[in-house]
Design a protein around this nucleic acid. Structure first.
Lengths: 243, 243
DNA sequence: AATTTTTATTTGTCTGACATTTAAAAGTCT
DNA sequence: AGACTTTTAAATGTCAGACAAATAAAAATT
């Protein structure tokens, strides 16, 4: 674990990379304690603030955690799926908002991924996951539901669908796409009209899933995708020439 | 953009979050310059090293870049797909290596995603992308090719396939899955035997793609997935009882 | 007018210090 | 001896002040 002393700028970035490499290569294993900041600064021949900046970089990526006190220090994190979600979502959100990805593109990607999950989910979904979906549909039918609550329930429904595939890697991948799109999705579910239609699609999906009919699940998702894209177009058009 | 002065610990994390929120909410826009470190430390009532630690956290997520000199400072980054790849890959690699995700699970997710792309790619792939795939297949057939070069070409082939979908969000999502799996994939392509089989599948895919036959592309990918999983099982078994 | 020099600003780094947290060691009492 | 309390040491968290290096704008010079 060494750094190049010839490149003077960005020492903290170099040190962070060196430690990162050590973690990825397995040289440092999960829950192992890194040397103290004082020892690291000695080892890399830099000051403690520089070492600290490097450690903060790694902390930002959830690669390490720090603990104060006598037997404290920096420890290698076991990266959990849950922990990775938030990063994924932050990154995806920024990508969508800053890079001017069209709603259509994001929508297509999201449903393409979801349909891939749905095929597996039709075979594997547990009774519990199906019950969750039914319960969310029921909640979505409540008259007094706020838009935010409807959207949250919508996410929960699709989350259960995806989790039904029983593949945490897929769940992880999709969480980013779905949640990042949510702000954009919100604005198109603002009428009771579209709620009814969406609930109808959800029922189609749940029914098909109950019978393990992956073809019908796929068809329902395609319909939902088309409906969603159409709604988004209408919203965009309405904005162009408002009442 | 404020922080809670009552929670004394982790000031740099709080400041980083405050700035991060400002970026996500659009309060700070792309290429806008943040206040100087001195001004930020004044604004948040903390010392400059603390501000710097916060900025390094953001830099680790590629949310900002810094520049020295008179009109230098920290600037909000336009998050590019390319920039997001590396983070995605780092995270995915760690998830796979530390969380003991089985090869089967990772493999299933990867091919599920890839098949989702392939359906779109069959409709949209450009002649250029098809040519890239053919060229990679040709390279893979070279006798003296090292294992590393073969694997790199393999990645390039699938990359072209995925890019053929013309959906950068999908390309981004898949890049993480494919590249994170590569180290695991490497060990199963160590015989000339498996290379031949893999090349055959690649040819099937390219042929089907040339004719826009998404059904055949799908079938070829399923076959490749099964073959890959079988190879991985064999490798695992061979390790259990070596010669 | 073009070029060079100076200057001011900003990040990068260092030194040294103190505060806070925490676990272990030492001490004390029953 | 054992349980409880106090002390201590080690580690991170934070601060203040300083200098180095880079860089662009301003000033001076040719």
């Amino acid at each position: 674990m060494k750094i190049d002393p010839k490149k003077p700028a960005d020492l903290s970035a170099q040190i962070a990379q060196a430690i990162r490499d050590a973690i990825i290569s397995g040289e440092l294993i999960v829950d192992e304690r890194l040397p103290s900041e004082a020892e690291l600064s000695e080892q890399f021949q830099v000051s403690r603030p520089t070492v600290r900046e490097a450690l903060k970089r790694l902390a930002a990526q959830s690669l390490i955690r720090t603990q104060r006190g006598a037997s404290g220090g920096a420890f290698v994190n076991r990266l959990s799926f849950e922990g990775a979600y938030s990063q994924q979502i932050t990154t995806s959100t920024l990508l969508l908002s800053m890079n001017a990805v069209s709603f259509d593109t994001a929508c297509e990607a999201r449903f393409a991924l979801e349909r891939a999950c749905a095929a597996l989910s039709a075979q594997r979904r547990t009774a519990d996951q199906l019950a969750t979906m039914r319960a969310e549909i029921h909640r979505q039918s409540q008259p007094g539901l706020t838009d935010e609550a409807f959207c949250a329930s919508d996410v929960a429904f699709h989350r259960a669908l995806v989790d039904g595939a029983g593949n945490p890697v897929l769940s992880y991948q999709l969480a980013g796409a779905v949640e990042a799109m949510q702000p954009l999705m919100n604005m198109i579910t603002f009428t009771a009209r579209s709620r009814e239609a969406i609930i109808a699609f959800h029922n189609q999906i749940a029914d098909a899933l109950e019978h393990g009919d992956s073809t019908k699940v796929d068809a329902a998702l395609v319909s939902l995708e088309n409906y969603t894209r159409q709604l988004a177009q209408d919203v965009a058009q309405q904005r162009r020439k408002p009442a």
